[in-house]
Design a protein around this nucleic acid. Structure first.
Lengths: 182, 182, 182, 182
DNA sequence: TAATAACCGAGACGGTACGTCGCGTCTTAGG
DNA sequence: CCTAAGACGCGACGTACCGTCTCGGTTATTA
């Protein structure tokens, strides 16, 4: 349907002008669709971007239990960071920005996106704790914040790349702290 | 002059309606000042908020050399986080959001604010390295990202408080990683 | 549509505050219409007034051939002057003023309004010349200027009424000069 | 003093951008004078233009009694029209426009300028009446309106030059009507 | 010779209107 | 029925002038 055209148009426009230059009018124009149609399916441009991103992120969602904490954590962070291609990173930054501006969207975004991602990592670490690979002292909630915080900081700061080296260094750090070599 | 009134008005309006509800018109109205006057001194609302914040942040700027790495790091993070009162945190979140929307402001903000803050922490750690309190293996740049990333994540996510417990846990973590007990 | 409301509002505001107090903002407000809508249909307030006036002037446009020069001239001037009610006169004055201020509008106004009105009177006199009621010596172009000049002078000067006595005196004068009793 | 600079600047700016593009700010800037100084001496731009014009018009003011009606009338109209150089004509048009926009200025302008000029011509014709060169039937007030109306029409319409031919034709017309060869 | 006043430039200031842009809602016509 | 096309009320944008208001820095007397 026209939904695809809208999502594609939104992606192209973000690529071109950044989220700041993104407007419902422009999306409709670019998609060759009437504004009414856009509003029929999404309440705000943030939701459009969120859906576009969800599609792209569908691949990296699963956090399978490989039996090894290290492999689980490293795999999760690698997949997470690999998924944050420049285009996706821009969209994520846009959503985080929007969440600061629009309290309604903020609640949805924090609850359904940020908390959910933390939850996945926490579950990985919980499994590790059951197996004894995570120290009883380790604050799993804090470790999840630490990991995602560092990732988001690069996404938003744009001062360094989101590459595999970064993913591995982050994994090393999380694993070391989880093992409570601290 | 009228500058004070504008800064105060901006603070009040952010408090009241959030940054999303902040407009140049509203600032001018609230401050009892003409729009022209606002534009005379600041090119965008982000710059107003930035200046308001800079004033508030002037106090926590110094990172004195206490002779002890732990004291320096803990003190720096405590002061940083203590400075991020709810009101200040909202402003910081607003600026980070604006930086995602306005490439011009982004450059100024990233360079002059984010990079500068990292730099202060890096210098603390460099001093520790000279004294031998920081391992040669430790990646100081990464540690700074880790610390600020985690702080920003709480600022932007709003899911947990920016309190002294948090500051201390973060300090513990950074110090452990710096000492390379990993 | 909203066009009618705009034209009516413009008329009312001119009536109330004069053309000097007429603004696009006020027109939009008075008409209960958005500024965008006003600008969608007219490039300037002068064009709005011009259209409002054209509507009002539609009635007095025809200059029928009655077979008698005197009847044609007298009829034309009577209808022209009768059409310049105080309200219409104020609008005409406003347009003439605007034409002095806005060169773009001036060209349209002079060509499409002033020249056109002169043309109608000239045609009446040309018909009279063919019938021999207008002397070969008479300068028809000049007579048209004379007639409209005198009318406009009263419109702009506001020192004397635009009544039937005036129309008839003007008609007498034009006819006498046309007959070259001079 | 600075008054001269202001008057000169106003003239230049009208020449360049027309009265519509004339602003107090621009006059002050062009004259190298502060706005305060401009406001110290004139309440509005119309008054500045009026003064500039009065200076230029000082020469053509007198309407001497030559003893001959024809010479008086022809001389008066020739001098009047010769005084309306393109630059002066633009200023006159500007003032007439301003009078339509600003009721306060309108009263001054109509009373002190328009009425006064008509008065001069009426006096010429009155002298002619005393001498018997003007018919008892002639409406002197109307003749003055006719003459000035036609002149103003050319000034405002800009469709034909204000030259000596025009002045003479107008004089012929007024004289013929005055003599009541009608 | 100094003080004192008149005048000046510079420009900040509170306002109002400008003309444009995007919002989200609505109506209309057509496939 | 879903769509494109786009008019519409709304409200913020950033700019231009308005007329008023200090603020210092001349000149040009007057004491």
């Amino acid at each position: 349907v026209a939904r695809q055209a809208v999502l594609r148009a939104a992606g192209e426009l973000i690529e071109e002008h950044g989220y700041g230059g993104l407007t419902m009018e422009a999306i409709a124009r670019q998609a060759g669709v009437s504004k009414q149609t856009v509003y029929r399916w999404w309440p705000s441009k943030a939701e459009i971007v969120l859906e576009g991103l969800t599609d792209a992120a569908a691949a990296l969602a699963p956090a399978p239990d490989s039996g090894s904490l290290e492999q689980d954590v490293r795999g999760f962070l690698r997949r997470t960071i690999a998924g944050a291609t420049p285009q996706v990173a821009r969209m994520l930054a846009a959503l985080m920005a929007e969440a600061q501006l629009d309290e309604t969207f903020a609640q949805a975004f924090r609850r359904e996106f940020l908390a959910h991602r933390r939850q996945v990592l926490r579950e990985v670490l919980e499994r590790g704790r059951v197996r004894g690979d995570v120290s009883a002292n380790a604050d799993i909630q804090f470790l999840a914040e630490l990991a995602f915080g560092t990732i988001w900081y690069r996404i938003l700061g744009g001062h360094a790349p989101l590459d595999r080296r970064f993913a591995d260094k982050l994994a090393d750090t999380v694993l070391a702290l989880a093992a409570d070599h601290v």
